[in-house]
Amino acid sequence: MNEIIFFGWNQYPILIKNKPDEITKPIQFKFENENENENENENKNEKQIKQIVTGGFATIFLFENGKAIEYLNENDSYQNPEKIQIEENIQKKNPKEFINISSLIEDTNDRIIQDIVSGYQSIYLLTSNQNAYGIGLNQYDQLGFDSETLEKTKKPILMMKNVSKILSGNYSSCVFLLNSNQELFGCGYNVYGQIGLGESRKEIKIQKLTQIQNIPKGKIIDIQCGYFHSIMLIENENENGKRKLYSCGNYLYNGLGKNKNTYEFTEIKSSLFEENDNFIDFSVGDEHNLILTSKGKVIGFGNNLYGQLGTEDTNYQSIPIQIELPKLRFNEEISNYHISCGDNRSFLYYSPPPFSNLEEDLIKLI
């Protein structure tokens, strides 16, 4: 069950064979590796994809058995993908590539990692005690501290307590922290107003975690950020769990789903968003976005220079448009499908529960 739908810049000729550099029409391919048939009795779940993470420099396929295969976009990695086995003793095998980040937290009682979120050049950790830590580059104050005194850090620094969610994006130099009272705070790169503080707050950098006012009513499910914009998914319990999308930032590459700049989170509207349909999953790339609905529709908008919207052309899409996909192979719940957007490519893949337990405090530093 390793079939995946792909469209965009084809940087993976070893995976997607005999296809052009730009794949503007969604195609389906099967993930294969040379060891797949070594053991015919191998449990099929061990080959099942759990997650696809794609950013600007790499795409990682994570499997249920804990194996991750990474395809880099540099040097000769097209021909020689780097294979990574996530194990408890991985530091002994390759200490230059892996580090146990949780062991760097000074408070020994706060070293159980509940979630890891990646920004463009920063990593954020959420511990079981609901404390948020930041590590990496702080060029745009994305760690919540003055970058003139703290340019970067190799050790996790405490950003905020009582945090329920950390929200950012692969191309984002800003971050959002949501506390248990559903109060939202943000800091970092804000030159395009992508933190959503309003038209009067368009500083290049928001140094300290600042509460964001005028948040639409409802429960914040997720926020994902591109380079120019941010998109928020909100669920309204008073409307039988109906979900709505809101965006803010600069419309330069049409990532807002509207034709004007918006400096507060405002609703994205479209005739494609049916009243009896709902949003299951969404993903924000550098400048494009994809949405998956409960009726199995995939809707996209934004930059399409490499065909990453799958519209069979390379035209920008300023407003949401439905993507025609190959017929889905699996007769399963649509909630088991997921979307992952990179800078100029997109994946739609199937990943059913339950997920396996991995060592979540092991992370590759890129």
Rank of each mutant, 00 (worst) to 15 (best):
S294C: 06
K217A: 00
G310N: 08
N336W: 14
G310S: 10
R329M: 13
E333I: 10
H229N: 15
A132L: 05
D313P: 08
L137M: 00
I69W: 05
N276Q: 12
N138L: 02
S247T: 04
I99V: 10
L15W: 15
T54P: 10
G302C: 12
E333P: 09
L328G: 03
K269Q: 07
D313M: 11
K93E: 15
G307L: 13
K208W: 04
T210P: 01
K205C: 05
K161R: 06
M1G: 06
I321P: 09
L256T: 02
N250R: 04
L62M: 13
T311D: 05
D313R: 09
F57M: 10
L143H: 07
C341H: 12
S351A: 06
E3W: 01
K25T: 11
E324G: 14
K364W: 06
I157A: 04
N240P: 02
T54A: 12
S200A: 03
I234T: 08
L158T: 07
N315H: 12
N39G: 08
G134Y: 00
N138Q: 09
E267Y: 03
K93W: 09
F7A: 07
F61C: 07
G255W: 04
R329D: 10
I299C: 13
K30S: 11
I157G: 06
N179D: 15
E287H: 11
L256N: 11
N94Y: 04
Q213D: 03
Q28A: 02
L167A: 02
N331H: 12
N138G: 11
N41R: 15
V175Q: 06
D107G: 09
